[in-house]
Amino acid sequence: MTTRARKNPTTASTIDRLVERFSSMSLAGFAVLVMTFLYLPILILVIFSFNDDRSLTLPLSGFTTRWYVALFSNEDLLEAIFNSFYVATVATVITLIIGVPAAIALDRIEFPGKTLFRRFVLLPIALPGVITGVSMLNLFKLMGMNLSLETVILGHATGLVSIVVTQVFARLQRMNRSVEEVSADLGAKPWQTFFLVTLPNIKTAIIGSALLSFTVSFDEIPVTFFLTGRDNTLPMYIWSTLRRGITPEINAVGTLIVLGSLVLIFISVRMLRNPGN
């Protein structure tokens, strides 16, 4: 009795509590709707990749894996996949070669034009891909270069350097600077300090951002659209088949891409979240 008496709420707070409960429940319902909105399309993609019918309509007509089987006999597609791997791998390596030193420079070197440099390095993350694509197309044309997978690589690397820079820079900022001084103090030459102290501390940020770069490059369209020559990357191949109409094969290849992307992204997010040890 005493407890109830003590807890006996005033009318105002009863209303507040009701309002709060009601808002909690409607928020939860809304959240479910948002998650459905986000994942239903992906689910549909996956489901129809196993649907035994050419047309993408309900009701479902049966389970099949023939679209997947068809993928592996489609030589254009296989070549496009191979091209995408090639482009994404090389582009990622370049983003690391450029991005890691750039992040280090932004973190610890004072130089004239630093603000301008930072703006330019980070610009592609903010700008629509179409601008990066068009401006680099102009450059290559001016230099008399033929469009090819290599020009696509240069475009991707330029666009994705900013991912590596932001992630590695963020990690460097969190890193205790005095460990590098200790290393020098203990007689380590600069390269030793870099490989034995700095690199191990930013390793996971590098791997994480590399995986992100890879995933994005693998799926990239706007820049690729302008810079590719006769060889297609996978998204460009899908793009061109889309113009001919929707097919279950695309759902199958899409399912595989989604699966692969998810795996890479989960690894990379883990890497980027945990600061190493």
Binding site: L38, I44, F48, L56, D219, I221, P235, I246, N251, I265
Partner: peptide, 16 residues
């Protein structure tokens, strides 16, 4: 996470 999953495919599903 979907942010990093193929942009093209995510647009394409809405066509379907």
């Amino acid at each position: 996470v979907p942010l990093w999953v193929s942009y093209l495919l995510r647009a394409y599903t809405w066509k379907t």
